[in-house]
Design a protein around this nucleic acid. Structure first.
Ligand SMILES: [Mn+2]
Ligand SMILES: [Mn+2]
Ligand SMILES: [Zn+2]
Ligand SMILES: [Zn+2]
Lengths: 141, 141
DNA sequence: TCAACAGTTTAGAATTATTCCAAAGAAGAA
DNA sequence: TTCTTCTTTGGAATAATTCTAAACTGTTGA
């Protein structure tokens, strides 16, 4: 990727962060560029940290965790809970669901209009539905 | 609960464990009796450990974890993943789904015949669907 | 009845993911 | 610039869970 394009992406990213009420600091711009640059992805804090390192961005793991949570709060990411051991973050914030491969821990998107959940009962009085998550657990065989 | 009834429950439990290929040891019988005695419940290792202690059963936390996993493997329990922080176990192994209250971490059953997931796409070639989990996340307000 | 083996329990250490902390650094406003 | 407010960060702290190796117990078959 040439320098001009990279800079353009970063300015775009900075604008998104500012719009979300987050200071476009060097670490945040770098992480957000990595995250939001290349289509939809599912990744963990460790994954992102490693990817940043490979891209020559030196950020602490604490900063990666901070950024992931702040981005999620800001609606730039969505957190996916499928495995008790680790937390996944999803750059696809649109309505969709997931296959979760129990063999290798991989997540695969299921378009939101492909799947339908019907007859969800009303929640207990005083409670509001925040989201309906569907996880289709799959395995080899 | 009188002694006779308690003993009857324990003999019943021992039989279930034996049928599942698990030696009916004192800790396992005690835990299984607590778990399978009183209707459907959702609980964590800590919860069960505390409950055992209150019932006068001294078992280590390691044993609680072992038992929960073995019981799950044997089909006496089902594990529910809704919160990245802790693992829930469900004494209801029938087909059903859950409300998850994000305020207090409580799980509420949704009968399996009340909810329906349709148009689940076929999994990738060579993969089989193990289960479809639906979590309706709710909160106050 | 009981030895002997295999499976089980357990205390405590280890592991792992994640969060916390307090000091040093960087961004925005003036 | 200068000042103020966020941010970042290395390292310590947490918390859930797993591991380990030694002690213990259920089962079996002499
Ligand atoms: Mn996608
Ligand atoms: Mn954890
Ligand atoms: Zn996704
Ligand atoms: Zn349930």
């Amino acid at each position: 990727m040439d320098g001009n394009k990279k800079q353009a992406i970063q300015e775009d990213t900075a604008a998104r962060l500012r719009a979300a009420g987050l200071r476009p600091t060097r670490p945040r711009v770098a992480l957000a560029s990595l995250l939001l640059g290349r289509g939809h992805r599912h990744l963990t804090a460790e994954t992102l940290h490693a990817e940043a390192a490979k891209a020559g961005v030196r950020v602490s793991l604490a900063t990666v965790y901070n950024a992931l949570h702040q981005f999620t709060e800001a609606g730039l990411l969505r957190q996916v809970v499928v495995d008790a051991a680790r937390s996944y973050f999803d750059t696809n914030t649109g309505e969709h669901q997931h296959f979760f491969c129990e063999d290798d821990g991989r997540l695969i998107d299921i378009p939101g209009d492909a799947i339908a959940v019907s007859h969800v009962p009303a929640p207990p009085r005083g409670m509001a539905v925040r989201r309906v998550d569907v996880v289709v657990r799959i395995k080899r065989g």
